[in-house]
Write a protein that binds this DNA or RNA. Structure first.
Lengths: 209, 209
DNA sequence: ATTTACAAACAGTCAAGTTTGTTTGTTTGA
DNA sequence: TCAAACAAACAAACTTGACTGTTTGTAAAT
């Protein structure tokens, strides 16, 4: 019975364990909710002992903020990538709205709703998250600024439309918790896409109406 | 040291105590957050013993759902009252948006954000809240339907604009938790009021553009 | 190339503090 | 006198942080 485990460097072990903890934390947050999220459960989902976690993190709060920050950073990566690709390609406004709706409703904002209220009651928690959230908004800005330049729309105005879009999507996702009705949200999204299209007139072709 | 307490009927005592518990529950929920809301704290804020609460409610969950339902019912009352008064008077669309923003950001949606995620993980909780939330939306519907009839706009369309407005407001309030910037939200609200105005052309006068 | 010493990574247990539901006792109104 | 309204104490269950011990990798010395 030779051990089938390949030897890994300490750094690799550490990095992988941290990743496991982060993933487990977000999973538990999403599936069980903030008030039910215990370090015991996180360790179980991560397949680790609680003692191992105390080696990597000093407190529960540190585990949470680290996991959330890592999650947002990852979203940022994808956001900037999309912004660059989109800027070169010059896509439609509909596409942006769909993209935002998609990645927000795919767990991101549900997880956000779990920890967001905590920041109202925990200054440290809030202080730790504000910088990553700022970066998140820079990522969004990159997308809409690219669009604004292409369409010759003032960036200030683009920013307002962007922020409004984000708020609509947040509000819609919040509502999905108590109201499940696909058509309802589809109608609203369609309506909003129409409005955004109006705000960003297409430069040459692609005007469908 | 004669007791200065006036004798009250059992029903009065009971009703007042229930009201105190409800108020305290919402207060604690708003100020301390869902995960920090304990029955001990609620009792303290209500100025009651925990034992007294167990007489009125069988469980913590019952205390919470009762308080939340009562809060929403009270909002509904005001909503329907506004709808009636507004319908007779025939106010502006700006006014509606302002009104919604006002009562949503005055604690209502902050409290909602505290308990909303819980409904994702607690079916009983959710089942108890869905009917009151439905009534809440009927109240909103009453306002916008009144407007739609006055302006000769299809009610379906009014409903979409209404729901979008609600979602924007929800999303904005959620964002205020991590971003405080009065001007930012003022600009967005102004932009949105403009959009709503476009969707509901004034019947005769009051066209400002 | 081993051996040896050390630090990082991990597991498991314990005690202190909270929280909730229950139970028992007391006061107030019908 | 009886029941509702309230108070207070209790027990069981959780959760967290701290502490102790074991394994795994690293690097220096032989």
């Amino acid at each position: 019975m030779a051990s089938s485990k390949k030897p890994r460097t300490q750094e690799e072990r550490s990095a992988e364990t941290l990743a496991r903890i982060r993933r487990a934390t977000i999973d538990v947050l999403y599936e069980r909710g903030f008030s039910r999220t215990s370090t015991t459960e996180i360790a179980k989902v991560a397949g680790l002992s609680r003692g191992a976690m105390t080696h990597h993190f000093a407190s529960k709060e540190e585990i949470l903020t680290d996991a959330i920050a890592a999650m947002l950073e990852e979203v940022n990566q994808r956001l900037f990538a999309f912004a660059e690709e989109y800027g070169e390609r010059g896509g439609t406004t509909d596409e942006i709205v769909d993209y935002i709706w998609q990645f927000m409703s795919d767990r991101l904002f549900y997880v956000t709703m779990e920890y967001l209220p905590e920041t109202r009651h925990n200054e440290e928690f809030k202080a730790r998250l504000i910088p990553v959230v700022r970066r998140f908004h820079e990522g969004l800005d990159a997308i809409w600024s690219a669009l604004a330049r292409k369409r010759g729309v003032p960036e200030d105005h683009a920013r307002i439309v962007m922020n409004t879009t984000m708020c609509i999507v947040r509000g819609m996702i919040a509502q999905t918790v108590l109201r499940q009705d696909g058509g309802y949200y589809a109608d609203m999204l369609a309506f909003w896409k129409n409005e955004v299209r109006r705000q960003f007139p297409a430069p040459q072709k692609e005007g469908s109406s």
